[in-house]
């Protein structure tokens, strides 16, 4: 008989992160198939009000500690470890997000349970739980097994539908009072996003450039196109990390989420961290030299070509 399943619910500045509902959805399905109960745990000063929204789980543990709004990896893994010991959890699901990074490996080290990263799918077969993880930036998928049938699983954001994790049901809530713990990593303050020259979240048209733009000098071409179309230029992370455009122009996981009417993507591969920020755009049109680029599974229209062959004549035609 496997033990119950535990989900580490995640939130940022009082807002429940989508990954929480993704985990609740898949967690519910697994719990039902394995005939076990589903628990969640929430940290932070608003933990109680957040817990009320987690009705897909049977019960929610609340750790009402203001120090834990951003969970300290040390305190979180200690609390989770003692819960694993008490409840004999078979699976602990944690979000593969910037907020939760580090908790999984630390918990694995302290609890002795194995850790699986980048998990994109989970299933039950003959009483054993199986997993598919993505490796090498999504170029390879790997079916992974846990011979002990117990483990800590890091869920890759965007892998499961979040709707399945939402419910009006009220879960039973249990507040855990825990001895105050010291952490050497002290949260000081939030740094709000710098207001950029343009707000890419408010544009109807975005011309998005990726590493395929090759160098900073080519950005003017994208800017010319964006200007003609009445929009702005945004970019994938490598373009920002190179310092070619400011952070305010970054689309994706650690950048902005955008929903323009037109998203014209030039030389962007379509990594999940990028797609997270643009998948709900109206019309997505992608130009990429690689016919297997994942961006083509997000775009409605694709052009498998060199962007430098397509954009100059397009600009010429638009001008006339």
């Amino acid at each position: 008989m496997p033990g119950p399943i535990l989900i580490l619910a995640e939130h940022l500045k009082g807002e429940i992160a989508d990954i929480t509902f993704e985990m609740l959805g898949i967690g519910r399905k697994l719990a039902d198939e394995l005939k076990v109960t589903l628990h969640s745990i929430v940290f932070g000063k608003e933990a109680e009000s957040i817990a009320a929204n987690l009705g897909v789980s049977d019960s929610v543990f609340v750790v009402n500690n203001p120090q834990m709004d951003i969970p300290s990896t040390d305190i979180a893994s200690n609390i989770l470890k003692s819960l694993i010991e008490q409840k004999n959890y078979s699976l602990v699901l944690i979000g593969g997000t910037n907020v939760s990074t580090g908790i999984g490996p630390k918990l694995s080290f302290r609890s002795g349970l194995p850790f699986i990263n980048f998990c994109r799918n989970i299933w039950v077969k003959d009483g054993m739980v199986g997993f598919t993880s993505q490796l090498f930036g999504g170029k390879i998928l790997s079916d992974v097994g846990l011979p002990g049938n117990r483990g800590i699983i890091c869920i890759y954001p965007g892998s499961f539908p979040s709707n399945a994790g939402k419910s009006d049901k009220k879960p039973s809530i249990e507040t855990l009072s825990l001895p105050a713990e010291e952490t050497k990593v002290v949260f000081k303050q939030y740094i709000e996003p710098e207001a950029g020259d343009v707000d890419i979240t408010k544009q109807d048209v975005l011309v998005s450039i990726g590493r395929g733009i090759s160098n900073a000098d080519n950005i003017s071409m994208a800017e010319e196109l964006a200007a003609i179309l009445g929009g702005a230029v945004c970019a994938s992370r490598p373009v920002i990390d190179q310092g070619w455009l400011p952070l305010s122009r970054q689309v994706g996981k650690s950048g902005m989420t955008v929903k323009p009417k037109l998203y014209l993507s030039l030389g962007v591969s379509g990594a999940p961290e990028h797609v997270e920020g643009m998948k709900d755009s109206g019309l997505i049109l992608a130009i990429n030299t690689d016919p297997n680029a994942p961006i083509f599974s997000v775009a409605q229209y694709g052009i498998c070509a060199d962007l430098f062959d397509i954009i100059p004549p397009l600009i010429e035609k638009l001008k006339t």
Binding site: N98, V99, K188, Q189, I191, E192, K253, S254
Partner: peptide, 8 residues
């Protein structure tokens, strides 16, 4: 963190 938000 996400959405351009950072923490010190």
């Amino acid at each position: 963190f996400a959405g351009g938000l950072r923490g010190e």
